[in-house]
Design a binder for these strands. Structure first.
Lengths: 133, 133
DNA sequence: TATACTGTGTATATAAACATATACACTATA
DNA sequence: TATAGTGTATATGTTTATATACACAGTATA
């Protein structure tokens, strides 16, 4: 599987944190089941064009948070996680980032109707995926 | 006017950058017209419970980007900005953060229909403001 | 009109967080 | 046992945030 990990070096969010968030999403979202091997820190570093240490830092964070397990010399794998915990992470993370987007739009003096229109317009530019009804 | 500047110390986004973004929103959104005095770096530092230097850093960034003018000993004021430039900042900033929210939701394996429902549900929890129709 | 005071922004030195290059150690296998 | 894969540790530079001391502008008042 080709991992859809994308980072932005221009963003003010630390690179290691962008990586952590995206793996959390893939794991909590169920796209990476228990036991799935993650890319090696070298492979991911090369892919994202960042340092090995930064990738390692991200994997360490994910391990501390219980999302993955690392085995020296062997690799890094998705850890076992309770389904309700995954669901909790999924719901709260998306909720939080949606609120953040709305708050920013309000700060820019858009009203609720305008915010709805803008959001739907952007959403319509996304191609329908296989999971969509 | 009571400025609605809010920062999160837990966020991974640098504090000075949070401040910059929010002032950009207020200025580009037209809520702070040309010449409006900003709070002094000390007043804002005290209000947000952060260091003077961090506030200053934010104001310096805003000045470099042309949003404000600082006069030593006098204070800091909203600079003159072309309306179409304000509009451009407004549209692109909101567009960007909306896309970011959608991309995160997709990473968590929500489909487009679900994303729309979640967004509208959250939007409905916001009170209607005076600018709303 | 001198000067003290209180407001404003500014500069220097220091600590913590983030990102890196380089060298090291463990695991599997040809 | 050599080699190519994995994760790990040490030393270093950059970015972010801070405390403290400094300089300029306006004003009250002796």
């Amino acid at each position: 599987m080709e991992l859809p990990i994308k980072i932005s070096k221009d963003s003010r969010e630390p690179i290691y944190h962008q990586i952590v968030n995206q793996f959390k999403a893939l794991i909590a979202g169920g796209q990476l089941p228990t036991g799935t091997p993650l890319p090696s820190i070298r492979a991911l570093s090369k892919d994202l064009e960042i340092s090995i240490i930064t990738t390692r830092r991200a994997y360490q964070d994910l391990e501390v948070q219980g999302f993955i397990k690392t085995l020296q010399g062997k690799g890094t794998f998705v850890a076992e996680l309770a389904d309700d915990l995954k669901q909790e992470v999924k719901v709260s993370s998306v909720h939080k980032i949606m609120e953040n987007a709305i708050n920013t739009a309000i700060n820019y003096d858009y009203n609720l109707e305008q915010i709805k229109d803008i959001f739907l317009e952007i959403l319509h530019t996304y191609p329908k995926g296989k999971g969509d009804n």
